[in-house]
Amino acid sequence: MSQTHLKVKIGPLELKNPVLAASGTFGYGQEYADLIDLNLLGGIVIKGLSIKPMSGNPPPRIVETPCGMLNSIGLANVGLEAFLKEKLPWLRKLNTAVIVNIYGHSTDEYGAVSAGLRGIEGISAIEVNISCPNVETGGMAFGTDPDVAAKVTEEVLKNTDKPVIVKLSPNVTDITAVAKAVEKAGAHGLSLINTLTGMAIDIDTRSPRLANISGGLSGPAIRPVALYMVREVVKVVRIPVIGIGGIINYQDALEFLIAGARAVQVGTANFVNPRATLDIVEGLRKYCEDRKIASIDEIIGSLKGNTQPGE
């Protein structure tokens, strides 16, 4: 029996399958290399990269919540120079897409990181983080205003030779407004959602469980919210959308693909099951084969009853 085609395209970026490891949950890939064959992944999205190394927020940084977790890591990362010198040479040997998630504390810094990655071999695309809830400046501040989000996107595009995916925040009144602005600015794709801002309190000490007070909620708890936002965005943009939010198995991934996501990212599930990404790839393949579906393209956007009264 011929194998189902799992290949998908995110603008100019070709992926061997639609399953990516999400930024911040997979380190620099090497952390998982002893446990899974990274070459079987659609791609890896690297931990958010900034110009200078960042040490992150004070602990405690994580707390478990019902069907999920809050984190306030604070975008700790090795910085551009160390990434190029110490992490990228190893990543280059992989036969999978390497997408570098970037962020800055100003529009200029976004441009500077992008410029630092320009012309560098072994980087398949850039994912622009305008949606991290855990740093005071940068991150989400750029993702809540459509005009600012568009400016950051333009700045990155001006400074890069790579496909640009912009990662959107769900912490907005209307995610479609930001999505449309970013598309208009020229982005090749969108990924959503980043974490939802939340908090947890220790009732014995009456203090926040995170040192940063609030953090980003991830895990299955946010999946229905993410799925809805993906569908809303897919309806209003033409560029490809990557679905993210609480995906832990292939059934979850299928929901996003059916809703119209061209690919998915798996995040928190990597912590629970280091094989989660590969299990999902296998699950998608089997689902298609069992139903004699020749290409995953047939699944993408196949949601029935795709219009509501009034739409």
Binding site: G24, T25, F26, G27, E31, Y32, L35, K47, G56, N57, P58, P59, P60, R61, I62, V63, E64, M69, N71, I73, A76, T268, N270, F271, P274
Partner: peptide, 17 residues
């Protein structure tokens, strides 16, 4: 002892000063 998510050095959740 700290709270951990991954145990593999990927999430960076178990920071100590």
């Amino acid at each position: 002892e700290t709270t951990m998510a991954c145990g593999l050095g990927a999430c960076l959740g178990c920071a100590v000063k």
